[in-house]
Amino acid sequence: MKQMRPNDMMLQVSMRLITLIIFAFSFYLFLAGHNNPGGGFIGGLMTASAILVLYLAFDMKTIKKAIPFNFTTMIGVGLLFAVFTGVASMLFGFPFLKHFFDYFQFPIFGEVELTTALPFDLGVYLVVVGAALTIILAIAEDDK
């Protein structure tokens, strides 16, 4: 992670490609979760490992620039997502965490199912990514 050696070049180029693929796949897994294997947990873990791969190839500073998130905050944001999805249904007089879904016609995508479980799952996703990376980076950065 510290010094550039010639064969790091290979690693970095291939890693960029691989990471992109993993990212895309993790996002697919996350969205597919409602109907196929996948979902917030799996998508989140996949994203976390993609970012970890990046860390293996590049040094800390580069990544901090490329992914300007604070992962600890991400946990909080994720939790808020989950809670607000729950509270939202209460505003309409339904119990906490009651979910809704319906099918809509969109010009390009055709019929698409939209569900309130998705923002909830997004919360799960964010918490998982945030927690996994927070834990690992906390140790990795503690080089004393």
Partner: peptide, 27 residues
Amino acid sequence: AGGYNIVNVILVDFRGLDTMLEILVLG
């Protein structure tokens, strides 16, 4: 719940509160 993946539906819908507390623990 409008989902085909039963496991995921249980997690996010039927037992949503459990999941919420679980991510809380993780956090």
